[in-house]
Amino acid sequence: MSGQTPLPAKVPPASAGPSAAIADMPLEVIGQPGVPFVEIETLRAREFIPAAKEALTSLLKEQANGKLIRPVFNWAGRNSLFPLHWGLACCAIEFAAAFGARWDAERFGVVPRSSPRQCDLLIVNGTVTWKVAHKLIALYEQMPEPKWAIAMGNCATGGGPFRTAYSVVPGVDKLIPVDVYIAGCPPRPENLLDGILRLEQLIKERGA
């Protein structure tokens, strides 16, 4: 990334961590978000504009060459990931919280859709049992290409606390290909947002 826009002057210092920030939080700030997202927002502003420029330039160039306009698709696709609205277990509650008032994942273009035909991201938010395994595969196969999968939480990553149980799939990567793993039991909504941002980075690097 060559032409970086300079950071705005009024960026608050990064806090020591979410839990520390919340423990110190007096209740007077009750209407305000508990975790500062100015940082993430500036990061996006820094990345978004050059990426758009880059994509449009290459679009013009490739159109002149008669090639496909893949960078534009890539840029547009990674900035509007539509996850499947499907709650599996505990992580689904944090998944919902990430779309609530405090975290508001829709800022990042992430909008949950109820039909797999409209989705390009499968967030496996919970324990997968063998009974639901082939339904999960069916849903994944119904999603149009290009598609990605995030294993959210320890259960989807490797079975978590239920790894020894007789009915639990020890890790969803036994069933579908997974692009990003998010640790935590359950992960906080910040972790989910971080995972989505990392997936966007991954999509950009792959250039698909």
């Binding site: 063998w130 082939h134 007789y166």
Partner: peptide, 11 residues
């Protein structure tokens, strides 16, 4: 308790 293989094959 560690016997998930049968179910896996079945599914």
């Amino acid at each position: 308790i560690h016997e998930p293989e049968d179910l896996e094959v079945k599914v």
